[in-house]
Every structure is written in structure tokens, then in C-alpha cells.
């Protein structure tokens, strides 16, 4: 089982400070702070449009922040494009599960991490590993050479998750990974999340489902209208408190950040 070590002795793998992001007229994120530690699952909660997906895209380099600092294992880093995030060891499952519909499952699984011998693709090895991975993750995929256009939403999600786990990342960002999964696949994913957390990975999980959050997360960070609105320990905080912070009944953003200057969040 997991060692219980005081949080302070873990340096955060990833720390965000003062992250702001604007899309045209929409201020999607305002001075957001977040820390992810190795061996910990943080849930990110918030209403629709709260900025959760945007925060993930900031971290994964798809939509870099306008302002703010990102620290990786204590050092300042720049994440300006997906490639930078990959190089650090950040893997992401996006909400929209975008894929290359002209490639088969193997092609999509290994996209960006193709196995090759002097530049020439090793299809046999990729197919072998793809099958193995599908088996380990108990994913119900009849044929890894199927074009992804033929997959169900849940199967797409499974492939996306498998893709993110390629290349053993240190931080895993999951944007509503259970939205399209069946009951069994969901509990499977949670087992998987616990497994990789115990191997020392840091996981950020976006979810609207309090049950899911209670099941896997250690802490839950709440975003509201693009701002931090509380950080709670899942095991000790009553569910109602988290929910009211999501809906705004308890507007922690205001009480927490009257001036915003000398405050360190959390």
C-alpha cells in the first residue's frame, strides 16, 4: 500500500502559479494556482465553463497561458506547445477525444511515439505492444487494426487513455475520462488510476461526478468562473461543502482572495 508521508516532504511535480488565460472576450482563467504531487490524485471540479478544460490545455501546451508561472519538480519551465509537455512527461486525455480518423487503433495509440528502426516503422512490434496494452487495461477492442472511425465513444475513450499512458508519463491529466465509459470500464479505470498513482504518478482528474471523485481522488480543487474556489481533502470534507463551492453557494474565491497579493494558495 501507499506510504503515508507528510505532504510537505514531497516537492510538487507540477506547480502552477497565477495562471491567466483569455479567449477573445472570455476570461477563461484568472490567477489560478494548482499543485500536483507524485503519488496523488487531485480532482478538478467546477461547473460547465468554469475553465477546467482550459487549465488542462494550459498544462498540456495546447493553449499556453497568457500569464503565470509553471514549475516542474521545483524548476521554472515554459510549456509553449504540446511537444514541451510531452518532453517533461505530461500526458493528457482530452475531453473531445480527437483522433486521426484515417489511422487505425495502433496508429493512433503510437501517434507521436512511433516505434521505428532507423526511421522505418516497426508495425509488428507496435501491433504486439498495442494488443498487450489493450489486454493489460482490459479494454474491449476486437481488433487493433480497426480504423478508429468505427469505434464506439467508450472504445475511443479507452484508446485515448491507452495513448496517454504510452511512454510512462509522470503527470497524467484526464479530462472527464469516464464520461463515455460503462460501469465496468469506469471501475476498471479507477483501479488503473490507483495503480499508476501508487507507482508515483501525479494525476489530475476532471469530473462532475462526486461519487467518482470520492472514489479515487485524494484532494479536490474547485474552479469557479475561472478562479480557484477552494481546495479540499476528499476524505475529511463533507460532500455538501464541495458542492456548494462548485455552485457558488460558498464563494471562496471572494473570501480567499480579497487582495490576492500575499496569499499563497492553497
Amino acid at each position: 500500500m501507499r506510504e503515508v508521508v507528510p505532504l510537505a516532504t514531497f516537492p510538487p511535480v507540477l506547480a502552477l502559479r497565477g495562471i491567466s488565460k483569455r479567449f477573445g472576450g472570455v476570461q477563461a482563467l484568472v490567477d489560478v494556482e494548482l499543485q500536483l504531487r507524485a503519488g496523488e490524485v487531485v480532482a478538478l471540479a467546477g461547473d460547465n465553463g468554469a475553465g477546467k478544460s482550459t487549465l488542462i490545455k494550459v498544462i498540456s501546451g495546447v493553449a499556453p497561458a497568457d500569464r503565470g508561472i509553471i514549475e516542474w519538480e521545483g524548476g521554472l519551465v515554459q510549456i509553449k506547445q504540446p511537444h514541451d509537455a510531452h518532453a517533461l512527461g505530461i500526458a493528457t486525455v482530452y475531453q473531445d477525444l480527437a483522433m486521426c480518423d484515417n489511422l487505425d487503433i495502433v496508429g493512433n495509440l503510437f501517434l507521436g511515439r512511433e516505434i521505428d528502426r532507423v526511421g522505418v516503422l516497426d508495425e509488428v512490434e507496435m501491433e504486439r505492444q498495442a494488443r498487450e496494452l489493450m489486454h493489460t487495461l482490459s479494454m474491449r477492442i476486437p481488433d487493433v487494426r480497426m480504423p478508429v472511425a468505427a469505434l464506439s465513444a467508450g472504445q475511443r475513450q479507452a484508446v485515448s487513455i491507452a495513448h496517454s499512458l504510452m511512454g510512462s508519463p509522470k503527470v497524467l491529466l484526464l479530462d472527464e475520462p469516464t464520461a463515455a465509459l460503462g460501469v465496468e470500464q469506469t471501475s476498471h479505470l479507477f483501479d488503473l488510476i490507483e495503480q499508476i498513482r501508487d507507482r508515483g504518478m501525479a494525476i489530475l482528474l476532471i469530473s462532475h461526478n462526486m461519487g467518482d471523485i470520492k472514489a479515487v481522488a485524494d484532494r479536490v480543487a474547485v474552479l469557479r468562473l475561472g478562479r480557484n474556489n477552494g481546495l479540499f481533502d476528499v476524505n475529511t470534507t463533507p460532500q455538501e461543502q464541495v458542492i456548494s463551492s462548485i455552485t457558488g453557494a460558498a464563494d471562496n474565491a471572494k473570501t480567499h482572495r480579497p487582495t490576492g497579493d500575499d496569499e499563497v494558495w492553497p
Partner: peptide, 25 residues
């Protein structure tokens, strides 16, 4: 069709969003 580079060309054509996210330059 057989090289890593070519695979990324097809990937870009079949889904630019996914290709970009997967680190294709």
C-alpha cells in the same frame, strides 16, 4: 507509408487536432 515521418503526414491530414496534441510538429 513506412516511416515515422510519413505516418505523421497522414496523421496531420486525418486529424490535425489530434496530431498537434500528440506532439507532431
Amino acid at each position: 507509408r513506412r516511416t515515422r515521418y510519413g505516418r505523421r503526414v497522414y496523421a496531420l491530414g486525418g486529424g490535425a487536432v489530434a496530431a498537434r496534441r500528440a506532439g507532431v510538429r
